[in-house]
């Protein structure tokens, strides 16, 4: 396969082969990282970091999994490790003070930009479980293994995250239909 050939050349330090591998997988890597970390600037840095690490460790890639899968795991690990480190640095939940979404379209199909804005506003701990499960399609088992927690914790975090998402997506100008009395809690 052509990709195998590119990998062999990249292992030998061939820059153009590396560039081609990048072109093939750039979207998937960037997307996974971007969804997890919640902002463009950080995603750009970490996506680059993931690629640099991938090339540094390419020697270790023996082809047990598809290259794309290997790379995807590495990239999500780079993002998750960053979240872990930054959450230790400050216990203040990012996103707590961010402005609320001003207008949400509670249409049959959820407006995409509103959805993405809401994901980005989630506290990092909620965001990573929501993104891994609902966006990236990981199982609770997989998430638990990666975050070193129990599947039960992963589940309860997910439900809390979704509840928070729903709150963030609540239209400000709520119609009668939307008068669920959340304020009373």
């Amino acid at each position: 396969m052509e990709e195998d050939n590119l990998i062999t050349r990249a292992k030998a330090g061939d820059r153009s082969a590396m560039g081609e591998l990048h072109e093939l997988h750039a979207r998937r890597v960037y997307t996974a990282v971007r969804r997890l970390v919640g902002n463009d600037q950080l995603a750009e840095d970490l996506s680059q970091e993931a690629w640099v690490r991938a090339f540094e460790k390419l020697e270790l890639f023996r082809g047990e999994a598809a290259f794309g899968t290997w790379l995807y795991r590495l990239a999500t690990n780079v993002a998750l490790n960053h979240l872990r480190r930054s959450s230790k640095r400050s216990s203040v939940e990012a996103g707590a003070n961010l402005p609320r979404i001003t207008k949400a379209q509670d249409d049959v199909i959820v407006a995409r930009h509103v959805l993405i804005q809401a994901i980005d506003q989630l506290p990092p701990g909620y965001r990573r479980v929501l993104v891994l499960h609902d966006v990236e399609g990981w199982t609770h088992q997989e998430i638990a293994r990666s975050l070193s927690c129990s599947p039960g914790t992963s589940k309860s975090q997910l439900h809390k995250a979704r509840a928070r998402m729903r709150e963030l997506m609540q239209p400000v100008s709520s119609s009668n239909d939307d008068m669920r009395d959340k304020a009373s809690l």
Binding site: A26, E44, W51, I109, L115
Partner: peptide, 28 residues
């Protein structure tokens, strides 16, 4: 909730910045 859930699973992939490869090469 169901609609949000579905919309999440259908999010499209994103393009990295156009100069990403140049930046990676510089780092390498």
């Amino acid at each position: 909730f169901s609609r949000i859930r579905m919309a999440l699973s259908a999010l499209p992939d994103l393009d990295p910045p156009a100069d990403e490869w140049t930046a990676i090469e510089a780092k390498l």
